[in-house]
Design a binder for these strands. Sequence first.
DNA 1: ACCATGGCTGTTAGCGGTAACATAGCGCAG
DNA 2: CTGCGCTATGTTACCGCTAACAGCCATGGT
Lengths: 359, 359
Amino acid sequence: MFASNNGSTAAGRTPRQVTKPPVADPRRTLTLRDVSEASGVSEMTVSRVLRNRGDVSDATRERVLEAARSLGYVPNKIAGALASQRVNLVGVVIPSLSNMVFPEVLTGVSDTLEDTGLQPVVGVTNYSPEREETVIYEMLSWRPSGMIVAGLEHTDASRAMLAQAGIPIVEIMDIDGEPVDSAVGISHRRAGRQMAEAIIAAGYRRIAFCGTMMPYDHRARKRLEGFEDALRKAGLELADREYYSGGSALLKGREMTEAVLKRTPDVDFLYYSNDMIGAGGLLYCLDKGIDVPGKVGLAGFNGVELLDGLPRRLATMDACRLEIGRRAAEIIAGKHEGVIGGEVVELTPTLQPGDTIRA
Amino acid sequence: MFASNNGSTAAGRTPRQVTKPPVADPRRTLTLRDVSEASGVSEMTVSRVLRNRGDVSDATRERVLEAARSLGYVPNKIAGALASQRVNLVGVVIPSLSNMVFPEVLTGVSDTLEDTGLQPVVGVTNYSPEREETVIYEMLSWRPSGMIVAGLEHTDASRAMLAQAGIPIVEIMDIDGEPVDSAVGISHRRAGRQMAEAIIAAGYRRIAFCGTMMPYDHRARKRLEGFEDALRKAGLELADREYYSGGSALLKGREMTEAVLKRTPDVDFLYYSNDMIGAGGLLYCLDKGIDVPGKVGLAGFNGVELLDGLPRRLATMDACRLEIGRRAAEIIAGKHEGVIGGEVVELTPTLQPGDTIRA
DNA sequence: ACCATGGCTGTTAGCGGTAACATAGCGCAG
DNA sequence: CTGCGCTATGTTACCGCTAACAGCCATGGT
């Protein structure tokens, strides 16, 4: 991506040369038995101490902890999980890490899981259903305590695996569809509709759309569907549309905006499928001295905090990312007493008019 | 973070009420035995088929695969890993996901690991050494095949655990220090020095710094140290400095820039510890009609692609993020034949002068 | 003095796979 | 026909830990 990263191997320390098999460590990997021998109690007692479970006298507890510490013992969770049939992992499957939405959801998940003893494990699908299927399969093979998966659209095999897994499954971000088990998210159709209504109410009539054309970004698609529905209901239709994929979103936003405004000069509003390209469009308009929101109005989607520093606040709708992460994690952690599975939590995003829709 | 996410639980399907223990699934969780019974061969043969190992006749292979598929069998990696003493996971420990640098490194890691059968597992420390220690401990307890850890600064306990683990360890991003095992990164001291030299060469003399004050962002600190070294060597010192933490980086960049320019009006250059605040500074200057790079020059660090869409290209230095991820993964995957451990790979970032340093 | 009680520790039997070795056919050279 | 070398499959013994239960000892009520 950036050319000429001239890498050199500086032999700061003499690299160990080796013949074939990895150097047999002098010290085998430690087990409970080592700690038990070092502290003179049974393995079971050591296990109890290290897990803080069952009664152990303070004296032995001390002795064991000391031994474990001095040996540098790290328990083997693989063996532990197999024996106890319990795994403290929660699989989280998301399409991408470069779209800041998902790291934010993750933050919500981690925060909530923090004090439950559960730990999130992330898998990334790059918006590919096949990749998603693989990721889900791999994750399930570690027998996690729950799964959080972005979106409601999956391959049949994926749905089947999730349904069979016998653990809580939460599909997030979207609720326009039929979840495998539980779901937490917003209605993107409604979000799109709502934005369209606000735009129409503000008096804009020649409305264009700029967005991703990733075939598998179902949520962006649903927003656009809702958006167009609302336009139709008002007797309007999109004046123009422009799609992109890949590249710097900010730059793409500029380019698409330029393309649309040149091709359809009478456009008076641009609806972007996300805030980043919206920001690009905003910067373009400001550069060109176009009156925003007077001559052209702009709106995005997602409420990215990053945009706070722009010259003008872009109209947007937050997707409740943190909250989605939290709620999903709560369901997995079983914080909703008495109810198991089948929950659908609809969050309602707020429209933030910013400075790019006229009042 | 965004207030008033009014969540309601829409009971789309009847939530199952439960008494106490998780509903005992009608169908127990499947094991090799189930598949073996369904296909009329031994468990061992099934195992061989599913792992593609050892000779199995095409006829039985077909039969077994068919049985596994129709049952929806998902192998239990926990048991497999315990028995085979092999785990196809690589731990990746990074400070944060909101700084786009790390997702990019991750991309490099995943891409390279893709075809090695290894799988990255990410842990996030939030720049806390204690948290890092916990994360490392947790990860090691799953006995991964290797660990990639950001930075060279860790608690003693962390270093000890990593050193003892008996697996390849790669510390990434930074090479100014003593790695536990291998390291891949750039010299941040040198990067800072280089940037200072370029700025001085361009004729700027009243140079200020704006950056993070996270006590544990060692790399930003080292860059600043290198930067100041170079200034001193030229008989200069920082004209002013401003620190921040938290909040929207873009906005903070604006605020800090304003603060510095008001407090020290004769400043003619601002060096930012990252591109995002640098971008905020740039936007501020353009807003105020300040001549960039004539009256004030600007530079950041990291080469974030996101910035491509700004009105003017910020001077920066890329941190070789993708490449770092790739190289680290290669070391873990053992692609560097004949050498085991102790490698230090120094990558050299390129200075991209952009449009914010005068020629 | 006796036994129930409860606190602490040990024993046993797996968890669900896989490594390593054993075995059963089978073709074919001698 | 024997025996060797294959290939295809089965058997056995764990991997490192924990659930479940068993045992042991001091205590204390009666």
